[in-house]
Computed example of a mutant assay.
Amino acid sequence: MFNPISNVMNTISLSSTAIKNMFDQLQQNFSGNLSVKVKEHILDIDNEFGRGRIRGITFKSGISLLEFDVKFSQDFTLRAGTAENPPICFAYCLRGKVTHSFGNQSNKKVLENFQTGILTNKAFEENVLHFTKGEHIKISLIVVKTTSNQNILRKHNLNYRIQKSFLRGEESKNSIYIGSYNLKIADKIQQLEAIQQRGIVRSLMIEGLVHLILAYEIQQHTDDVKNKEMNKGNLTHRELGAVREVSKTIQNFPESQHSISELSHQSGLSPGKLQEGFKLMHGTTVSDYIRALRVEKAEELIKTSDLNISQVVYSVGFTSRSYFSKIFKQKYNCSPKEYKEKQQLMSLSA
């Protein structure tokens, strides 16, 4: 049981991998406010144990998402038991670091921020996560259910392919892979956190992004295996964090006239490091990233505002209407004018 006044590391043991049972146990230990909407469980904590949020959701495909966004007031260990057919767990650390070990083994692995991890277990073996007092941790765990029943497995093609790829028909073993740094996943997790919709739309958007994050994690593993040696690039943790902050600035103010020199000065990164970070995080250059955000914002304004095309063009930071029309048509396969006319026709017929 979690004891906030103890000076030794505290332990919480979870006896079930089912999200509902897991959150009932977490709520019993941490107190806090537990809310359940559809199949999404959210535990908000703001007490002597710490502050933050733990979220979990299960999809029909047999895939679950578990997220920790917390800062605990004590060191503690979370022990989670597994079943006869342990799941395959894909982890991503967005902030801080988490230490993992198997059962009572002393050998520990550290998952740092911006790193991916893939975890398999022996049957009935425990996963042990070690959290450090006062450290803000943000970690996402995508849990893929496994089974020895081939008829059930083939009903969920994605699970079947993942199980086949990582277990290769053999019994699950204790294994943890710590991957290269990957900022694209951080970007997708931010999109996951930003979802405001409710009901079935929310569930579908979360599930879609979870599948996309899972694809990025599997691709990262594939790339690392091909490269044999993990390619962490030349960027440090601080530099990776600086790239994320620059990305947020551009996302919040795409209409500003950002220059590479200004962004480099703001971030403390050289132009080369900044471009390297954007290639890593977004798969594109800084300029192309800014341009893409402006076009997306322009599309939204054309659809929802009364501004004419010229007003839209200048409000999102473009200086040439003809250039804007060209790249808008490349993205949406119609001109801004045609798009606005279609929106007006739909509005009149509604």
Rank of each mutant, 00 (worst) to 15 (best):
V8W: 09
T11Y: 08
I12M: 07
S15G: 11
N33Q: 15
S35Y: 05
H41L: 02
I42R: 12
D44L: 11
N47T: 12
G56C: 01
T58K: 05
S64C: 04
V70N: 03
K71Y: 01
S73G: 03
D75S: 11
D75C: 05
F76W: 15
L78T: 03
N85Q: 10
N85G: 05
N85T: 11
G96W: 04
T99R: 10
Q105C: 10
N107H: 13
K108N: 09
V110D: 07
L119K: 06
E126H: 06
N127I: 09
V128F: 00
H130Q: 06
I137T: 13
K138D: 02
L141D: 00
V143W: 02
V144S: 08
N151H: 13
I162F: 03
K164L: 12
S165N: 13
F166A: 02
E171A: 12
K173F: 06
K173A: 06
E193C: 01
E193D: 11
I195P: 03
Q197E: 10
R202S: 04
R202A: 08
R202K: 15
S203V: 13
S203K: 15
V210G: 01
H211A: 04
L212I: 15
A215D: 08
E217Y: 01
Q219I: 08
Q220E: 11
H221S: 09
H221C: 10
D224E: 14
N227T: 12
E229V: 09
K232C: 08
K232W: 10
T236N: 07
T236F: 09
T236Q: 07
H237W: 05
H237V: 08
R238W: 09
E245L: 13
S247P: 00
I250D: 08
H258V: 03
L263A: 07
L263Y: 13
L263H: 05
S264K: 04
Q266N: 10
G268C: 05
P271I: 05
G277F: 04
F278M: 11
D288Q: 12
R291K: 11
A292Y: 07
L293Y: 07
R294T: 04
E296C: 08
A298T: 04
E299L: 07
I302H: 04
S305C: 04
L307N: 08
S320E: 12
S320A: 10
S322Y: 14
S325W: 03
Q330T: 12
E338H: 02
